[in-house]
Each structure stands twice: as structure tokens, then as C-alpha cells.
Amino acid sequence: MGQNKMEKEFRIKLNQREIAPTPNAWDRLDAMLTIAEEKKPKRDFGWLYIAASVVGFLFVGAIYLSQTEEIVDLKRNEVVLQNQKHSEITPTATKEKSALTQDSQSIASVSNGNIQTTQSSSKIKINQNSPIHVITQTKKEEFLAATQTSGRQKAAESISNTIINQKTEQLTTAKVDELLANAEPVQNSGTAKPSVKVDSKSLLSQVDGELNLSFREKMLRKINKNYQEVAEAVSTRNIEQ
């Protein structure tokens, strides 16, 4: 179905035709173009709002991250402080341990020579085991250590006196009784009035620190306690023998 002559004629004539638009046609088009151009910046503002919101989220995120880093740093500082506390505690503990071992050694050495002195030392150890359940285990140990050191020093002095007396004089049962009578008041006086002043703040800080003890430290404390019990049992066995 092609074009016939008439249609070709129509086509040529219509395509050549020109109709002049009215003079205000361009003004109308100009106004429409201006409105369209004014609408375009709104799109840019939309992107600007999106960009601003993204920047805002990033800013809030950065603040949040910085806060979390500070928290981590605080935790680290706490850990360092705890370690410092432990390091502060451990020397005192070692000193106590060394004092206890010295005492046990002296007691063991004396026990071979004199039964009475070992008895007195066993009494002291009984005092060690006397429960102070109100305070924590560590507090009790420290308190006992403080009392032990004063009592043991005096006991050791009395023991040394007895050793000197052993060398110079022949022991008799009567003298043994006298020695016992002399040693017991000394012990009582030592336990009754502890010369060491207990710093409550340091004890509380130590207790607070030990509440957060690690498993390793707890195990070490248990082993130390068991070792002391075994040593005590061995010493009492030697005495019984």
C-alpha cells in the first residue's frame, strides 16, 4: 500500500507550509523554560540534604567510635592498675611467706631439741587456724600474719633462751614447767596486744583487688594454703614421733 500521486502532492505541500505563531508564543515558552530551570536547583538541594545527612551520620559514628576507644583505654588502665596492685600485694605476701617459712624452720629445728617449744608453736598455729570468718580469707591471713609475726618473734626469743639454757643447764622436769609457765604469758601478751597497726584502707583496697583475682592466683593461694597445712602436719608428725 504505497503512496499515490495525490498523497505525494499533499505531503510536499503540507511539509512546505509554514504558519507563523502568535508573538506571545515565545514569551510563554520563555516563562515555561524559566520555571523549569528554577525547579532544577531543588534537585541539587535534595542531593545536598542527602550529603549533609551522610556527613552527619559519619560525624556521629566518629564520636561513637572515639567514645568506645576511650572506654577501651580505661579498661586497659584498670588492668594496669590491677597489675600494679597485685605487684604491690605480692611483695608483702612473699615477705609473709618467707617469715612463715623462717618460723616453721626455726620451729622445726627447735622441735628436735625441745618438745615444749614445739608445743608452743603448735599453739600459735592453732591460733592461726582460729577462724575469722567475718572477713575474707585474705584479710584473715593478713591479720593472722600480723599477729603471728609479733607472737612468733616473742616465742622465738623465748625459744632461743631455752636453747641457751639447754646448753648451760641440764633440763629437769621442774625447769620445763617453769619454762612453760614463762612462755605462755609471753604468748598471751603477744596475742592480746598486737603491736602492728592495721591500715583499714589498704586492707579494703587489697580485698577489693583480690575479689577480681584470676583463676591462676586463686589456685596459687589454694596451693600455698595446702602446702602450709601439709607442712604443719609434717611438723606435728615429727613431734609425735
Partner: peptide, 20 residues
Amino acid sequence: YYKEDGFNNIESNLSVDDIQ
């Protein structure tokens, strides 16, 4: 319904206004 080439190949010789 349509018919192929059913028209006479005539020229109208009309003005563009008449065609319109």
C-alpha cells in the same frame, strides 16, 4: 477491510489550505 491500490492516481492541484 482495506483494498490495495484501489485509487486512481490523480493529482488534486489543490492549494495547501484546500488540502488542509
